[in-house]
Write a protein that binds this DNA or RNA. Structure first.
Length: 507
RNA sequence: GGUCCGUUCGUCUAACGGUUAGGACGCCAGGUUUUCAUCCUGGUAAUAGGGGUUCGAUUCCCCUACGGACUACCA
């Protein structure tokens, strides 16, 4: 059986958005599942759209996601180079091959001439097509004499090389997801294969490179489906039909509301990241948020993404990357586009956060404390982590849910004061404080008993004490159980905070 | 406009001719927690419309509607 080789082939025109990450993920899962190879090829044949830093961004993003390559622009491999601009010389000979076998031709029409033709067609509510029907009336080597063509080439006239689409043929693409897709050749354009700047277009470069790199399956976005027949045709023109990869065109990721392809704008508008990592546009300086910086765990991010367009056919939906590899199959990728749901992304992250063990949580929280220059003992950090981890959806929530363990309150929630802080409160807390001062056993269970006994013995209401005690401890109406907090804070800190609250709030 | 692709709860989706159309997110209600979350239990909610084919259509075919992608010397 042929070795499975797939590629992810982005162009470095900006940050990779989550649709691109998903395409990379599916390629990766497919490769691993079949013990094949996964490679990263950079498609930078359009020099005008090059964005500095984009290539590095793509590599770092996928690394963060845990998607690993076997070959690629950043690690090399047997089919190097993996950057198309570094393969520039290669493409010309392949364009010549098609020229020589009559399946491509030189065209000398200027962009301005073509633009005029398009405008003209448009005014008659038609679409201009450079194809089987019109190419005979244009400026190309199909109509010009050999000498004229030669003269034009010699004179340094700008030219492009176009594919010669056959006139009456049904071209069939077999797609692993969509089945048989066919299109009439007359409707296809004589697409440019080789540009006047000496670079190939995507169509030429991707076919040549996929062939040379022995790609077995092309798994890419649905936006490529309309040009897939052209690619099939090119394999035939090159005589590579026997080695043509299989195609799978993935459905699109749609915006959460309304319809249409998910875009950067949607993230800004609806307040969720569209990119794996934060991106700063080198030109405008505009910053787009990323999943990493927003505090998502890569495992959760990937799990969420994997299920957007694919499902295992079982009711399992929490998958480690290894489980995804085991379960993945192209056949179970859906046909229709998926709307991205930021709420579900959060659910996944919360699920993964609470699945972390205390030690792992303490590392995450420890990093936050380090940034804030707060030092605590590892034991205390671990205990706090354990008690708050279920309360955090995103990593920064770890701090939101625990800061009061590290920093004593300096202000107290006005609403809670209004509601619970009564004239007798200071005396009641003072008395409880004295009892706690004489308590040696600060385990949660014992504190619980001590506090409740105090309440019962004095005929007080639970709410009366618990709410004010909580207020004294953390400054508001939040946090884990009161007894648990007292136990963690320890005797000194607890007594200090009660004293401080009484002193500040008085009666 | 043309070509191609698509259409099951609000969302992600299962059911590859026979199910009370299943699960998850969200939402709602109850329980736990006398804070708030978590968690647990329950509930809400869908086959776009119309024709066929068939004993029987979510499932197969056709039409309509709607949506999307593509339509550059961009990828």
């Amino acid at each position: 059986m042929k070795e499975i080789r797939v590629r992810f082939a982005p162009s470095p025109t900006g940050p990779l958005h989550i649709g691109g990450v998903r395409t990379a993920l599916y390629n990766y899962l497919f490769a691993r599942k079949h013990h094949g190879k996964f490679l990263l090829r950079i498609e930078d044949t359009d020099q005008t759209r090059f964005v500095p830093g984009a290539e590095e961004y793509i590599i770092e993003s996928l690394k963060w996601c845990g998607i690993q390559f076997d070959e690629g622009v950043h690690i090399g491999g047997p089919y190097a180079p993996y950057r198309q601009s570094d393969r520039k010389e290669l493409y010309h000979q392949y364009a010549l091959q098609l020229l020589n076998n009559g399946t491509a031709y030189y065209a000398f029409d200027t962009p301005e001439e073509l633009e005029a033709l398009r405008k003209d067609s448009e005014s008659r509510k038609e679409t201009f097509q450079y194809g089987p029907l019109t190419r005979k009336g244009l400026k190309n080597s199909l109509v010009l004499s050999g000498e004229d063509v030669e003269a034009l080439l010699q004179s340094g006239e700008h030219y492009v090389i176009r594919v010669k689409i056959p006139e009456n043929e049904t071209i069939v693409v077999q797609d692993l997801i969509r089945g048989r897709v066919s299109v009439e050749s007359m409707l296809l354009d004589d697409k440019v294969l080789y540009k006047s700047d000496g670079m190939p277009t995507y169509h030429l470069a991707n076919v040549v490179d996929d062939y040379l790199m022995k790609i077995s399956h092309v798994i890419r976005g649905e936006e490529w489906l309309p040009s897939a027949p052209l690619h099939v045709l090119l394999y035939r023109y090159f005589g590579w039909e026997a080695d043509m990869p299989e195609f799978a065109h993935l459905p699109l990721l749609l915006k959460p509301d309304g319809n249409g392809k998910l875009s950067k704008r949607d993230g800004d508008r609806l307040g969720f990241p569209v990119f794996p990592l934060r991106w700063t546009d080198p030109k405008s300086g505009e910053v787009s948020s990323g999943y990493r910086e927003s505090g998502y765990l890569p495992e959760a991010f990937i799990n969420m993404l994997a299920l957007l367009g694919w499902n295992p056919g079982t009711e399992q939906e929490v998958f480690s990357i290894e489980e995804l590899i085991q379960a993945f199959s192209i056949e179970r990728v859906g046909k229709s586009g998926s709307k991205f749901d930021p709420e579900k992304a959060k659910w996944f992250n919360h699920h993964y956060m609470s699945g972390l063990d205390d030690r792992e949580v303490s590392i995450l929280l420890g990093n936050i404390l380090k940034e804030r220059e707060i030092e605590v003992s590892p034991d205390f950090l671990l205990s706090v982590s354990a008690i708050i981890k279920d309360r955090a959806v995103l990593i920064p929530d770890l701090w939101e849910q625990s800061h009061y363990f590290f920093v004593a309150p300096v202000s107290w929630d006005e609403k809670v004061i209004q509601k619970f802080w009564k004239p007798e409160t200071p005396a009641l807390l003072q008395k409880l404080s004295e009892i706690l001062a004489n308590t040696e056993d600060f385990t949660v269970e014992n504190i619980d008993t001590v506090v409740k006994t105090y309440i019962n013995d004095n005929g007080l209401g639970m709410g009366q004490i618990m709410n004010t005690l909580r207020l004294a401890l953390v400054g508001g109406s939040f946090g884990p159980g009161v007894s648990a907090m007292i136990s963690l804070l320890g005797k000194n800190e607890t007594l200090n905070r009660i004293d401080k609250a009484i002193a500040n709030l008085g009666s």
